[in-house]
């Protein structure tokens, strides 16, 4: 169980994390969602006592992180950036961590086996691919067999098989009664793994809800209409009391009406229809709508970002964020 209370972090004049209060509970996967620069990594670093909060507190099972004697046995973490010495073998990188927490060295072989790195255990970790590096990071998180696990964008750089593996791993870990806290900017990814959802934007808490509730509230269904008699259709809909929203390309979207109703209505008024279809907004769109007001780094293209295939997009989010954030901040 992790408890945050009024957690705030300021970098100069920039408020990266703004009075965050929430709890991460055991036995489930809690998704931590927010657009680039929302403050997810900063929050996680403060949970691990790497960054000092400007104000507020984090408690792990009621204790401050610094008061944990062998922290790896309580909480394992995978951070966003590479955090291993490349000149050291995978085995030695893990061994020195194990020793500092009095974890038997046999456990190092175990976790290397779990993440599928046994074959390269003696290889220097700087030669590792992005995915292998990620697996090594996950191995270090699992080292102390902790009851709390924290992953900052774990699917970053993993291939589809790796993504599948990590999804199942997180679920399996949670089902053993562990607390799993995982960040992402991909709603679709979270919908598959998380049971609970915490959404932040510009450091502020936007939602703290169960995944089931979020899906129920946010998956809007509507009907799409296209007609060569656009004006007439709009007037007819208005007369009959439907609220139609105009979108690009002469498309009308109507909430709260069935396709049957609308089709019959068009027939009655003899309006020609080129399209009559029932639509469901994706969770990704719901997420973007929720965070729309708090997205810091917009792309300068008007292509729909939701249309991107999630697995491919995930790998790149990190890398462009870092230089991009500097530019935008003008520091």
């Amino acid at each position: 169980m992790i408890e945050l209370e009024g957690l705030t972090k300021r970098f100069g004049s920039k408020v990266a994390v703004d009075h965050l209060s929430f709890q991460v509970r055991p036995g489930i996967v809690t998704g931590f969602l927010g657009p680039n620069g929302a403050g997810k990594s900063t929050t996680m670093r403060m949970m691990l006592d790497l960054d000092n909060p400007t104000s507020g507190t984090v408690r792990i099972d009621g204790k401050h992180y610094r008061d944990l004697q062998e922290p790896l046995k309580y909480i394992g973490a995978l951070l966003d950036a590479k955090a291993m010495h490349g000149g050291r073998s995978a085995y030695n990188n893990l061994l020195c961590l194990a020793q500092s927490n009095r974890i038997p060295s046999g456990r190092v072989d175990e976790v290397l086996d779990m993440v599928g790195l046994s074959a390269v255990a003696k290889k220097k970790s700087k030669g590792f691919s992005l995915g292998m590096g990620q697996r090594l990071g996950i191995a270090s998180a699992l080292l102390g067999d902790p009851e709390i696990l924290m992953f900052d964008e774990p699917v970053n750089g993993l291939d589809p098989e790796g993504i599948h593996w990590i999804r199942n791993l997180m679920k399996a870990l949670a089902s053993e009664g562990r607390t799993i806290f995982v960040s992402s900017h991909l709603m679709s990814e979270m919908a598959l793994t998380a049971d609970h959802l915490i959404v932040i934007g510009q450091g502020k808490l936007l939602a703290d809800t169960s995944m089931a509730d979020f899906i129920q509230e946010n998956s809007r269904s509507y009907t799409r209409l296209r007609s060569p008699q656009f004006e007439r259709l709009r007037d007819v809909l208005h007369q009959e009391g439907f609220t139609a929203v105009e979108t690009a390309g002469g498309v009308l979207e109507i909430d709260g009406a069935t396709t049957e109703e609308l089709g019959e209505l068009a027939a009655r008024h003899q309006v020609v229809l080129h399209e009559l279809s029932s639509q469901r907004a994706s969770l990704e769109e719901a997420f973007m709508q929720m965070t729309a007001g708090s997205v810091e780094y917009h792309a300068h293209s008007d292509r729909d970002p939701a249309a991107e295939p999630p697995a491919v997009g995930a790998g790149w989010g990190e890398t462009w964020n870092k230089p991009g954030s500097n530019d935008t901040e003008g520091k």
């Binding site: 036995g27 010495h85 050291r88 020793q99 009095r102 974890i103 902790p146 009851e147 009664g177």
Partner: peptide
């Protein structure tokens, strides 16, 4: 709620363990 209990025994870590760790670090880099 049932919390996860690790089968790995918890023995308090000391400065000695930190020293062992640092020795591994020092000897394992070129």
């Amino acid at each position: 709620l049932s919390f996860y209990e690790s089968p790995i025994p918890i023995r308090p870590a000391t400065l000695g363990d930190a020293i062992a760790s640092e020795w591994t670090k020092l000897r394992s880099v070129r």
